[in-house]
């Protein structure tokens, strides 16, 4: 996070503005000048995004691992389940959580742009928005996961979800072996952003720190 609290440097911070930051800044300025948006609305939106992070997803997953009834609610009505944990995922888009099982491994991509469960997880990582990930995740998901260090067993079905429309997807990974007795907080620490997209899976702490 930069010192001004969001992702782009401001003039006078001594950083070089890229062409895209300059373009965004010019558009921002125009939208404000034309009265389409106010500076306050832009700041609100930035704060909204900054208040969301993969830690929300990790909390949901850890709760689902330890509470079967919550897991079912998370799978059936994701939005309500997030409210139960004090998160606010309200908004026009719907959410679907897809569950990894011994038979199926899920992977999320948006080939057309960068649709991502932002209201829960915040901004997507840069690689998620890259042309390379978007084009390869649908066509050669196993090779992509291998590059992230995860290889699903050959007999497991890899199911890719291309979120092209009004639904945002998040993966519920499987609870790793060797985590019996761990509490929700400890479990949540095992859940990375990558595992919520499906390019990797959580591992038990001994491997985690290896």
């Amino acid at each position: 996070m930069s010192e001004n609290g969001h992702d782009h440097p401001h003039p006078g911070t001594g950083r070089t503005a890229t062409p895209s930051t300059l373009r965004v800044r010019a558009m921002e300025k125009l939208l404000v000048e034309k009265g389409v948006l106010t500076e306050a609305e832009i700041q609100d939106r930035i704060s909204y995004m900054d208040s969301r992070s993969p830690a929300n997803g990790a909390k949901l997953v850890a709760k689902a691992w330890t509470d079967e009834a919550f897991k079912n609610r998370l799978l059936e009505d994701t939005k309500s389940a997030t409210f139960e944990l004090g998160m606010d995922a309200s908004g026009p888009v719907e959410f679907i959580v897809v569950e990894n099982t011994p038979e199926v491994h899920n992977l999320i991509v948006c080939t057309l742009c960068s649709c991502y469960p932002r209201a829960i997880l915040g901004r997507p990582p840069d690689w998620y928005k890259s042309f390379e990930y978007r084009s390869r995740a649908v066509k050669e998901p196993r090779a992509v996961m291998r590059e992230f260090g995860y290889e699903p067993p050959e007999n497991v079905e890899v199911r890719v979800h291309d979120s092209t429309a009004d639904i945002r997807y998040m993966v519920l990974p499987m609870r790793p072996e060797g985590t019996r007795g761990m509490g929700e907080e400890g479990l949540a620490e095992l859940v990375s952003r990558d595992s919520l997209v499906g390019v990797s899976v959580p591992e038990a702490p001994s491997h985690f720190n290896a």
Partner: peptide, 15 residues
């Protein structure tokens, strides 16, 4: 020439 399990699937939202 898809490389992987024959059961591998892709699910997409279509209007």
């Amino acid at each position: 020439g898809y490389e992987g399990n024959l059961d591998d699937t892709l699910v997409i939202d279509i209007y």
